[in-house]
Design a binder for these strands. Sequence first.
DNA 1: TCTTGACCTTGCCCCAGGGTCAAGGTTCGA
DNA 2: TCGAACCTTGACCCTGGGGCAAGGTCAAGA
Lengths: 239, 239
Amino acid sequence: MITIGRLADYAGVTVKAIRHYHKRGLLPEPGRDSSGYRRYTAEDAVDLVKIRTLAQAGVPLARVKDLLDADPDALTAAIEEIDRDLRDRIAQLQHVRDQLVQLRGGDGLFVSPEVAGYLDDLRRLGVSERQIHLERDGWILMQTASPEDAALWIAEKRELMTDPDFRALYLEHDAAYDWPPSDPRLPALADRTRDWFARHRSRSETRPVRNPDIARLAVQTQPGASSPAWDRLTRLMEG
Amino acid sequence: MITIGRLADYAGVTVKAIRHYHKRGLLPEPGRDSSGYRRYTAEDAVDLVKIRTLAQAGVPLARVKDLLDADPDALTAAIEEIDRDLRDRIAQLQHVRDQLVQLRGGDGLFVSPEVAGYLDDLRRLGVSERQIHLERDGWILMQTASPEDAALWIAEKRELMTDPDFRALYLEHDAAYDWPPSDPRLPALADRTRDWFARHRSRSETRPVRNPDIARLAVQTQPGASSPAWDRLTRLMEG
DNA sequence: TCTTGACCTTGCCCCAGGGTCAAGGTTCGA
DNA sequence: TCGAACCTTGACCCTGGGGCAAGGTCAAGA
């Protein structure tokens, strides 16, 4: 006749868990002694070990209850299923872990290594933190919407960045963000940008875009995604 | 400006989860449209992906909240810790799985393969199911209290069972359970049992018992663990 | 005998959402 | 323009216990 605490120690379970099993009807409430304490027998201990074994494997308590007095065949089948489930859960955790290991610190936590490398390239180039932030958020969305497309796009963009003309244009666009919309440099920048795109249109426009929604969303609704000068640039290039 | 359902799809999260993040203050409540629907921007999507990434790794939401605007160093440290935790959880699940794989069906679920084999031996020997049940429950308790002792004991007991004299005694004790306490065969059985133990005392009594409590518990309080005939036997052997 | 610390009791709130509900909104095809 | 299908809203209950509160109990020592 042992108390709940001792029973818990024997079975390697908390007192709280035992009381919970009583509430759920998994373990019968034992008799009480004169002071109201629960008093357990060895039979309870045996039942408890069974419950613990199944519960530790992640079997829902409702199912444990059924399994406790199931016939051996059903039990064997159930165990196989439980094991399969366990295997899946391990694989999933391993996957999460791989992600975590691969993506270390800083930007790397939320974007792929390629994008992180690209952002670092921009930083070395002297691009503003505002712009880098904008790029990063854009890529997070791209990767979420379509990792494959994002992988293709980032590769292409990094290749583009090896072109000194493109780099110069990029930096100038970055700087233009804060210019007044009447700045005389804007029309010339618009012209050069148009020229560059005309020369490179063939490459960048031919691939089908699979998730245009998310791309539009990224561009349109980001706060700080535009400025008066940029708006004027857009009009100049369109007009 | 997208709805909650679309945002959920983008981020690979349920609508329910997003509302939960709002309640927990992880994700700011966005503006509502004229019909009261929440309307999200790309910024929300970015935040949500961050939250999801951390939450999937099992980080408590309270901690995610802090991590979201932590400095890079603290974040790197946190990630390392999260990864360690993940590793532990995988190891623990793997352990449970090993147990489950090893202990297939039937009695095997709750006792070691050795004990299961021993119980099968008893069954082949023609021991009553009542007695086998008694033995099984006893072993479950032993294994719970002290797996090492249990392993030693079961090995010894199986060896004992190779002795035809012991087997005969065991079977007769099993049969004696239902005898009337006045049965004339009882004194003779008690004598033979005492003799046998006298001859084998050297081996079975020399090892220290590490968890006598649980053993006594097992023997004393199991319902059906004794009968009038067995009680008489005990008295005969003691006297 | 009184106290101290460990143990027990019930009860309530918490996590991280999932399931389900009723009520109303939106969108699309007929 | 109507109805059907689908969406969104908040509210409430469920999991498997952990943590905490407030009180009763027990065994041992001063």
